[in-house]
Design a protein around this nucleic acid. Sequence first.
DNA 1: GATACTCCACTAGATCATCTACCGGAATGG
DNA 2: CCATTCCGGTAGATGATCTAGTGGAGTATC
Lengths: 115, 115
Amino acid sequence: MPKRGNQPIQGEMLQGTLDLLILKTLGVGPAHGHTIAYAIERQSEDVLQVEHGSLYPALHRLEDRGWISSFWGTSENNRRARYYRLTPLGRKQLAAQTTRWDEIVRAVNRILRPA
Amino acid sequence: MPKRGNQPIQGEMLQGTLDLLILKTLGVGPAHGHTIAYAIERQSEDVLQVEHGSLYPALHRLEDRGWISSFWGTSENNRRARYYRLTPLGRKQLAAQTTRWDEIVRAVNRILRPA
DNA sequence: GATACTCCACTAGATCATCTACCGGAATGG
DNA sequence: CCATTCCGGTAGATGATCTAGTGGAGTATC
């Protein structure tokens, strides 16, 4: 992967958004850590960065809350990998957080660009 | 001010966004803490909350960074109030952070709603 | 078969913005 | 006088993130 000119963006703004992004990524099917991080970076066109040190705590946090569940498997590269999948509760959470996100964006935009 | 049904939103998502909102609010002219908080809440149609415990640290932080400057004055209610105004550096920062915000929103939306 | 490299998971420690829950003072209203 | 409102502020805790590592197992190279 080429070195990017962009600065990393997580943490600078957007705390808690990582959870939403992970849930959304898992919405299409189970995946393991590396895949999740790569998918987020790729789909955001390399604007968003996912550091290992943020990813795994987030995954464990989401699992603790019952929004995702995990199982050990073998990756596409024949390596031991922990796969995560969205739970029914997680799917509800994904919907709720998406609505929330949209609401926040609208609210901030009302301030940045008053009618 | 009526009690709102909404849950507070700051901190849940959006860390660091408060700075942007303050800078933007001060973009139209000097204001003191209470006014700033009230303006953000009102313009966001009560979606965004600004707690005292977040506001003042943020104002001091922004002043430390040279993005805003302050002076003591008297409020509309004839009370001692510290007014803040945007510095030229702060105006640049406002522009930069606005661009950044837009970029992040686009990036997150690409993930939430792939083409 | 030794070595280097990649893939994958994970963690400790620190940083930093935020929230909760306070305090203190000065003006206003009853 | 007393309660309330307006205004600024802080201490301590919480919690997500980042930095900078560890370790192990498969793969490729020599």
